[in-house]
Amino acid sequence: MLTKVFPINLKPGKQAAAESIVDQFAPLGPGQETGTLSFRVYRDPAKPDYLLFVEHFADQAAYDAHTGSAAYRKLIAGQFADLIVEFVEIDHELLVSL
Rank of each mutant, 00 (worst) to 15 (best):
I90Q: 11
S38W: 00
D91L: 04
G78Q: 10
F80L: 14
Y63D: 09
Y42D: 08
Y72W: 11
L28P: 06
Y50I: 05
A18Q: 03
F80Y: 11
S69C: 13
R73H: 14
L10N: 11
A81W: 00
T3F: 05
G31W: 02
L83W: 09
T34N: 02
Y42W: 02
K14A: 15
A17Q: 15
D49W: 03
V88F: 00
L95G: 10
F6W: 07
A70G: 12
Y42E: 07
L94C: 12
L10F: 07
A70T: 09
P48R: 02
T34I: 02
A61I: 02
S69T: 06
L95P: 08
Q32K: 13
I90S: 04
S97K: 08
E89T: 12
M1N: 02
A58Y: 00
L98T: 07
A17S: 12
E33C: 11
A18M: 09
F53H: 02
F80Q: 07
L52F: 05
Y42S: 14
G35D: 05
Q32M: 06
A77N: 14
Q32R: 14
F87T: 10
S97Y: 01
R40N: 14
F53L: 12
T34G: 11
A62G: 10
A81Q: 12
I21K: 02
Y50V: 11
V88L: 04
L51T: 12
K14S: 14
L28S: 03
L75W: 04
D23T: 07
I8K: 08
L51S: 10
T36Y: 00
A62Y: 01
H66T: 13
R43L: 04
G29A: 12
Q79W: 00
A71D: 13
E19T: 04
A62M: 03
L98R: 12
Q24D: 11
K11C: 03
S20Q: 12
G31V: 01
E19Y: 00
G78V: 05
M1S: 05
R43E: 13
F57Q: 09
P45D: 13
Y63E: 11
A16L: 07
L52H: 08
G35S: 00
P27G: 10
H56Q: 13
S97N: 13
V88T: 06
Q24E: 14
D91F: 01
A81R: 06
F53A: 15
L37K: 04
A61G: 10
Q24C: 04
V41I: 14
A17E: 15
L10V: 03
E86S: 11
Q60P: 08
F6S: 13
D49E: 03
F25H: 03
G31A: 01
Y50A: 15
F53E: 08
